[in-house]
Write a protein that binds this DNA or RNA. Structure first.
Length: 408
DNA sequence: CGTCCACAGGAATGACGGGCGG
DNA sequence: CCGCCCGTCATTCCTGTGGACG
C-alpha cells in the first residue's frame, strides 16, 4: 500500500497543472488582443454612467470567447466603480429565464439565495436595486443557446431598460451555434445583435504559440519537447481548432509520461494520449446526463453497432443513420433490461434535440422525405466509446441523486 | 386521388417539491 | 402544521407534413 507521501514525491513533469486547465485565464491571451479591445470598447460606457450596447459573440468551441470576456471582466471589476457591475451566467447550468434571473438576483442580493420566490418578485427586486443604486449592469450570458425560453428572457431584460429611471441593463451573449439565431423572434434578435463579433478558429501556428505559452507555466523546464508541442498543435488544428482539446491532449500526454516514470513528454506520449482524450471528452458530458438520456445514447450506440432494421446499406447516402422510431424501440428494450419505466416517445423527440445541443449526436432533416418529417440520427463519437462509457456509468451508478424515484 | 404511415412538435394537464404566509 | 403559489418535468392529445400505396 503506497502512502500519500510516496505518491506525492514521485517525480513529475508538471509544474502547475492548473495552467493546462481550460478554465485557467492567462495574463495574456495571444491572438485575441483586438477582440478584447473591442469588448472593452463596447462595455466601457458602463464605467461612465452610460448604457453600453448589447453584444453578441459567436465562435466555435475553444476559440477563446469565454476566456476573452472573463479577461475583460477582471479588468472591469478592477476599476472599482461602484455603479458599474458585471455578472457572469453560464446558461448551461442556468438554462431557463427563471434560473438566469434568479442567479443574477442572488449574485448581488445574497439574501435571495433560495428558491421558491416567484419570477416577478425576483425581477422587481432586481430592478429596484438597479434603480436605487443607479447601476450599469452588464450580464454575460455564456452558452446562451442553451436557454430554453430565450425569447422571454431577452424580452424581460430589454424591457427592464424601459422601466428603469436610473441605471441600465446590457447583455453580452456568447454562443458557439450560429443556427440558433434563426429560432429567435425578430425583436429579441435585433436587441441582442446590436453589436456582433466573430471569433475565428485558431490556426495551427497560433495554437503552437498558445500551447507553448501554457506549457511553459504548466510543465517543468525542458519537460516537453518542441516537437511534441508542435504535434499537439497540428493534431488539434486538424481536429477542430479547439484550444481546449489541445490543452487536454497536452495534459494527458504529461500524465502518461508520469505513469511511465519518464522525465520528458515526447511525440510518442502525444500519440498515446490522443486515443484516450476523445473518450474522456465524451465521458465527461455523458456522466452529467440523467439516466434515461444515457439509455437513449446506449440505444443509439447499439443500433450503430448492430445495424438497423430499416437501413439498407447506402440507401440514404450515409449508411450509418438511424430513425427515431427504431431508437425508441431499442430504448424501450433497454429500459426493460435495466428495469426502468420507459418515457414516452414524445419525450424522446425533445431529448434528441437536447443531445444534439450537447454535440453528442447529429440530427439532420431527411428533407425531401423518406417518411414525411423524419430526422437522421448520427453519433458524434465512436459508438464503441459511447457504449463503453455508458455501460460503465449504468453499472456503477449514481453517487448523487440516487434517492430520486425512478419508476412509478 | 385519397388514405395511411412514421414522424415533428405545439398545447394542455397533472404530479411533485420547495418555500411562503398564516 | 396546512393550503397555496410557483417552476419543472413527463404524459397525453393533437395537428401537420409528405412520400408510399392501393
Amino acid at each position: 500500500m503506497p502512502s500519500f507521501d510516496e505518491i506525492l514525491s514521485k517525480p513529475t513533469v508538471f509544474l502547475d497543472r492548473d495552467a493546462l486547465s481550460p478554465n485557467y485565464i492567462p495574463e495574456i491571451l495571444p491572438f485575441r488582443e483586438k477582440e478584447i479591445e473591442k469588448i472593452m470598447k463596447v462595455i466601457s460606457p458602463a464605467l461612465n454612467d452610460q448604457q453600453p450596447h448589447n453584444l453578441f459573440i459567436y465562435g466555435k468551441t475553444g476559440t477563446g470567447k469565454t476566456a476573452s470576456v472573463k479577461h475583460v471582466m477582471v479588468k472591469f471589476i478592477d476599476m472599482g466603480k461602484e455603479t458599474a457591475k458585471m455578472c457572469y451566467v453560464n446558461c448551461r447550468m442556468y438554462n431557463t429565464r427563471y434560473r438566469v434571473v434568479q442567479k443574477i438576483a442572488k449574485t448581488f442580493m445574497p439574501e435571495l439565495n433560495k428558491s421558491g420566490f416567484g419570477l416577478p418578485f425576483l425581477y422587481e427586486k432586481l430592478l429596484k436595486w438597479i434603480n436605487k443604486k443607479k447601476i450599469r449592469l452588464v450580464i454575460v450570458l455564456d452558452e446562451i443557446d442553451m436557454v430554453k425560453d430565450l425569447d422571454d428572457l431577452l424580452y424581460s431584460l430589454t424591457r427592464a431598460n424601459d422601466e428603469l429611471k436610473n441605471g441600465s441593463v446590457s447583455m453580452i451573449g456568447i454562443s458557439n451555434k450560429l443556427s440558433f439565431k434563426d429560432s429567435l423572434d425578430s425583436r429579441s434578435k435585433s436587441s441582442l445583435y446590436e453589436t456582433e463579433m466573430i471569433f475565428a478558429p485558431y490556426t495551427a501556428v497560433q495554437l503552437q504559440v498558445i500551447l507553448k505559452q501554457r506549457a511553459v507555466i504548466g510543465f517543468k523546464k525542458k519537460a516537453v519537447t518542441d516537437s511534441a508541442i508542435n504535434l499537439v498543435a497540428a493534431v488539434t488544428a486538424q481536429e477542430t481548432g479547439d484550444a481546449r482539446y489541445g490543452l487536454r491532449l497536452l495534459l494527458r500526454a504529461g500524465e502518461i509520461s508520469d505513469d511511465k516514470n519518464k522525465s520528458k513528454v515526447t511525440d510518442k506520449e502525444v500519440v498515446d494520449a490522443r486515443r484516450s482524450v476523445e473518450e474522456d471528452l465524451a465521458a465527461e458530458i455523458i456522466s452529467t446526463l440523467p439516466e434515461h438520456q444515457q439509455l437513449v445514447l446506449l440505444a443509439i450506440a447499439n443500433l450503430m453497432l448492430e445495424g438497423s432494421r430499416y437501413r439498407k446499406i447506402g440507401e440514404y447516402g450515409e449508411n450509418d443513420v438511424l430513425f427515431s422510431g427504431e431508437v425508441y424501440e431499442m430504448y424501450e428494450k433497454l429500459c426493460k433490461k435495466y428495469s426502468k419505466h420507459p418515457r414516452t416517445s414524445r419525450w424522446l423527440r425533445d431529448y434528441l434535440n437536447d443531445l444534439e445541443m450537447l454535440g453528442l449526436i447529429t440530427l439532420s432533416a431527411s428533407g425531401r422525405g423518406v417518411r414525411g418529417h423524419t430526422r437522421f440520427i448520427k453519433l458524434g463519437y465512436p459508438p464503441e466509446s459511447i457504449r463503453r462509457v455508458v455501460l460503465r456509468l449504468l453499472n456503477k451508478p449514481r453517487m448523487f441523486e440516487s434517492h430520486k424515484m425512478t419508476g412509478r
